[in-house]
Amino acid sequence: MFSGLINNFYETAAIIVFGIGFVTLLLNRNIIKKIIGFNFMDTAIYLFLASKGYISGRMAPILYNETTPTLTKYINPVPAGLVLTGIVVSVSFTAFFLAIAVRLYREYNTLDLHEIVSMMNKEENEE
């Protein structure tokens, strides 16, 4: 098992970063810290995809010094496109979450999720 982990050290690092982000997302009560954890998980997935596309000794998939491409000269271009998609979606969702956090802070004057939930429950009970 450990030789596999050492062979795939980029993927292992990606999983560790994913774990850090996941724990941050679950255990922090501050909304901004939750969003930071979410972004950690995104970044870990980009690292994983990019490392899956890499082939040792080859170049980035852009035609270089030749007119017809040689297959053995370039790395896998598919994960690059997937990472691009992921980055855009992550930016959009971060902006959306932050906007919701701004609205929640304006309404409840706190970023602590537990306090927000208990205040919401209290408001419901009053109604």
Partner: peptide, 28 residues
């Protein structure tokens, strides 16, 4: 996840299953 990563094909190997005919189509 760590257990799955430990049994993935080795990093940077040209004969990994990810480097299949799709890549061939896109590049060639």
């Amino acid at each position: 996840l760590i257990y799955t990563v430990s049994s993935l094909p080795p990093f940077g190997n040209p004969s990994n299953p990810a480097n299949n005919e799709v890549v061939r189509k896109y590049i060639m």
